[in-house]
Design a protein around this nucleic acid. Structure first.
Lengths: 224, 224
DNA sequence: GGAACGGCATCTGTATGCAAATTGTAAGGT
DNA sequence: ACCTTACAATTTGCATACAGATGCCGTTCC
């Protein structure tokens, strides 16, 4: 049941850009597991290019924090210690808190309306227990918060942090009852934003992520 | 009087790592100005290497946000719009606020003592009006806050943001009276941390950066 | 005089080749 | 039986080579 849904990565830009997107997608979606080795020759033949663009892609992914590199050693999908993982979750909670707080202050009426509509629409996914669909909605919902802060740099940081965290929070909605809880927490955030209560929105978003952090376990890695 | 102080970049690691450090340093310290072109051939001959490691270094710097790249076009030192610059300053204030707040909660006694000592020691720099020295102390001071938060990911984000902001806040302490004000603001932060007042520390650090943001102007770029 | 076109120079994007470093393996010694 | 050492195979790091893209500049045509 682990079929990869739309594995066609966007085909624009240079070869390197395509590879970065493709590999990042594989890491984020779990096709590549933390600890897995990424040797240049295999990737080169897999993408039917030479090692040169592969190396550049790996370097960029390294700078993004998605793969680890050390000299004269193969690149590996980043695998983090438990304390570092905890630091990422905490940072994520802070960032989401900032986004929600700023969203409460700055979202346009259109953005607020769209957020609320999107949120209300997800209720049926909760009732039907559609985990995958709800996960997609959840991503969309949070992205709205990130955009609503109207701060490019914060958006960049929170987006990148989310990507780096993705490999370790895949089973988020597999826990029984988590879907309904998630909806409730979203509800708190949305209501606070609708009444422009920045502090409440920030706190609600912070707790929301902190709870997800608790719900997420550390998963098996590919390394040894 | 614009002498480059210790231009010897650490000589360890691969060629690419050395170049990344060297170029990043030049951008952060202002040897390379925003908008300046970085063509691969010049850099290659300048560092006496081939274009291959140069390209990898530029790609990494691009991922870090220090240089901008688009296909078939030379890399350029990142130049930002005013609104984007503002977003970076705001993000920086938020991050510093987080660091100070967490520092107030988590710093060890040794860290607190070192912070206070370092801070008190900078008073003589204020009195003698030693701008350059105070700038160095200032960097050290803030780094202590970043470390004091005991959160690797936050540390990474705040460090990277500071580097990206550096090209645009160079004249920070040239404004008359800014040194003394900076010291006072640091004092507020230190006192809050010493008495473990997380909220006060966070707010003091936020305002401190916000003020610096106001004090910093947008500088001339090398582009056209 | 100005705009459009074409060729040349320059630079980037990718492929290929070679040297150095690392890892796995097998022989030899304790 | 285990550890050490040496050698071979594999892989990375960097240099070089070539193809494609971009931009400049002079020429030509209106």
């Amino acid at each position: 049941m682990k079929q990869a849904r739309r594995r066609e990565v966007i085909r624009t830009g240079t070869t390197v850009e395509q590879m970065v997107r493709a590999i990042a997608d594989m890491i984020v979606t779990g096709t590549l597991l933390p600890g897995e080795k990424l040797d240049e020759i295999s990737l080169a033949s897999r993408f039917e290019v030479s090692r040169t663009p592969v190396r550049e892609a790996l370097r960029e992914l390294g700078a993004m924090g998605l793969v680890g590199r050390e000299p004269n050693r193969s690149a590996v999908v980043t695998n983090v210690t438990e304390t570092h993982l905890h630091s990422m979750f905490e940072a994520m909670a802070e960032l989401e808190g900032i986004c929600a707080r700023l969203s409460a202050e700055r979202m346009t009426v259109d953005e607020r309306r769209a957020l609320e509509l999107d949120h209300r629409g997800s209720m049926r996914l909760v009732h039907s227990g559609a985990e995958e669909e709800y996960a997609a909605h959840n991503t969309e919902f949070h992205t709205r918060l990130y955009r609503g802060a109207h701060n490019d740099h914060v958006f960049e940081m929170v987006t990148q942090t989310r990507a780096r965290l993705a490999p370790f929070r895949r089973a988020q909605f597999r826990l029984p009852g988590r879907l309904a809880k998630s909806y409730e927490e979203h509800d708190q955030i949305v209501m606070a934003i609708m009444r422009a209560d920045a502090v409440a929105a920030g706190q609600a978003a912070y707790s929301h992520v902190a709870i997800v952090s608790d719900a997420s376990a550390v998963f098996a890695t590919a390394g040894e």
